[in-house]
Design a protein around this nucleic acid. Structure first.
Lengths: 205, 205
DNA sequence: AATGATCTTGACTGAATGGTCAAGTCTGCT
DNA sequence: AGCAGACTTGACCATTCAGTCAAGATCATT
């Protein structure tokens, strides 16, 4: 049974841990930092979680479902281009709403996905395979310009997550302006053109 | 004066450090790991570099010029679309040839660019501003479809670096296949379409 | 071969850090 | 109020890790 206090403190800890792990990576984060951020003592963290590793694991576990949702929401019976655009928009929205989660993920992959390879190789891969099959079907039916499904989804991931993961760089280059300003319009155009039916490109005027 | 031995050992150390830092991040890497990787003793590393920090700094310093070269190579007097495509190709080539450098960079930015903000805010920003001005000029001259210069360059960075930075994920999803297989063709098409003159998109057949 | 400079390292130190524990405080229930 | 279980923490421990040092090995030069 979980008490009221347990619920509150677990949430405090996971939120603090997200803040610290996403900014410093697993090894860079310390329990003391997380404790301060959570407003609890270090031994108290370890009363709720067995170890630093356990906190990190719990965090990733929470994240994974959130991460898969946009992909699951693609409707195979919908309009191909509209569905892909909507997926891209959802992913961009996640960069806006959950940048820390995106960076937590990026940190993990960058370091070879040591704590996530099982998830990627099974659940995520299965979803991506399903997506790839759907794209191929749509293309075969002539409802979508032929496109490599894997590279299509990597493009969506790369372009949307970049705004969260490289936030620091973008801010420095754009004088602190909101990195996502104009991003949606840009990506709308980019994907609209990528997914448009093949056509003869007129020569440059 | 630098001796033969100094030259050799500094190179050994920097190469080992690149391997370790790019895979573990700054805090995750240890001098012992780097020493083993370099085939030298830990005190010996510290004979050649003042500190762990100094090794990392030297590494970044080396990397920075390499990193800017492709951008500097854009020829303002060349054909707009050809120049941008060539830049994208050079960046993709760097993901192929220097994936560790890309990950070192990504690690640094992810953690808020603590050791690189000066470089980004000055040198890199200046080059990007120059690029942006060039893109706007080309568009104003009607030689290039109007496109947000910043988001254009972010798109190039995101799409090319993704293959190095998220290598682990891509391999798991594609059953260990070379992540870059098919990437060039895909990005060629994507950017060709993005940069094509505006035109009426026919309705879906 | 001699010698001074360069290079190398085993053995250490101090600080940081993940984790423990026993002793206390608070909470909810009767 | 009183009690059992839940919660909290100061003090502590063991390990890891960046960095030091003094003594010895190697190298270049004559």
């Amino acid at each position: 049974m979980t008490t009221r206090i347990q619920k509150r403190n677990r949430k405090l800890i996971l939120d603090a841990a997200l803040e610290v792990f996403s900014a410093q990576g697993f090894r860079g984060a310390t329990l003391d930092q997380i404790a301060v951020e959570a407003g609890l003592s270090k031994p108290n963290l370890l009363y709720y979680f067995d170890s630093k590793e356990a906190i990190h694991k719990a965090l990733l576990g929470e994240l994974l479902t959130t991460w898969l949702d946009p992909l699951k929401a693609i409707d195979p019976s919908g309009d191909p281009r509209a569905e892909i655009m909507a997926y891209m928009r959802r992913k961009l929205q996640m960069s806006r709403e959950y940048p820390r989660e995106s960076r937590l993920f990026a940190n993990e992959i960058l370091q070879g996905a040591p704590r996530m390879s099982a998830f990627i190789a099974t659940e995520l891969k299965a979803l991506v395979d399903g997506f790839a099959a759907l794209i191929r079907r749509w293309s075969a039916e002539g409802r979508l310009a032929p496109v490599d499904p894997h590279h299509l989804i990597f493009s969506i991931w790369a372009l949307t997550q970049h705004y969260a993961d490289f936030d620091a760089q973008i801010r420095l280059i754009r004088d602190g302006a909101d990195p996502l300003e104009g991003a949606e319009a840009h990506l709308e155009m980019l994907f609209a053109r990528l997914l448009a039916p093949a056509q003869v490109t007129p020569p440059v005027g």
